[in-house]
Design a binder for these strands. Structure first.
Lengths: 121, 121
DNA sequence: AATCCTCCGTTCAGAAAAGGAACCTACACT
DNA sequence: AGTGTAGGTTCCTTTTCTGAACGGAGGATT
């Protein structure tokens, strides 16, 4: 998160320069919530509170992930209303290109992770 | 990690019962290292130290991820040598089925995350 | 006009996870 | 006896996440 000055390069940041394209991809979207945010974008969601309610992620983390996604060019943030200033996060071309990977995940989940009832209380 | 008794259901565990197959998939492989371990398996790696050297992940985390992957049926752990007892982690059918998703990630990384030189010192 | 509500965050303290390094067991080699 | 390899485990420190509260700006409600 500390992009100022010369923040310590975490093992994560190192992935961005890995020889393997999978690793480089993960350096951007290799986080649980990040992928789900992108999924929500494909499902038409675009606002902070929509993501928050849909995912149940803490607002803190959501804000950080959205910021990073914009920085990485996966999403763009524009004001869709000026009077009460409101922002919408939309997929860029780069973000939309993520569709095939998402489909891969979806198919795998569909096949190998059958729906289970939440543990009864 | 606390599978004993009734460990607190983290937001993560809840993903396993999500309506969305992508979320359910992520509940198993939605971790940076986990996906890279699976990638390494596709590249022919199978031993603890191979993963560790390849990924640079701490042994602590690697042990936890491998254990979870075996528990989730993505990998299986067999002794390939008895005299000095040595183990190999191999993809199961479930694990092999992850190939398309991995290819999706690879293609995206290849297209949108060009190789960059590590920051010069 | 005062209060409530929505949207988009930020801040803070405590809990959980990751990182780094050392340690351990078992066997083989020299 | 000492060194090396494989597969972990343990311990302590640092980082990140969670949960809940707070804030500000602009409607909408009463």
């Amino acid at each position: 998160m500390e992009r100022n000055g010369q923040a310590k390069a975490s093992r994560w940041d190192e992935l961005a320069t890995d020889w393997c394209p999978v690793a480089r991809a993960l350096s951007v979207i290799g986080d649980r919530w990040t992928i789900l945010i992108v999924r929500d974008c494909f499902l038409g969601k675009s606002r902070f509170d929509e993501f928050q309610k849909s995912l149940g992620v803490t607002r803190h983390v959501l804000a950080a992930r959205l910021k990073q996604l914009v920085e990485d060019g996966v999403l763009e943030r524009n004001a869709y209303s000026q009077k009460p200033v409101r922002y919408a996060y939309k997929l860029t071309d780069k973000g939309r290109d993520f569709a095939p990977a998402l489909v891969g995940l979806k198919d795998w989940g569909k096949k190998h992770m059958p729906i289970r009832k939440p543990a009864a209380v």
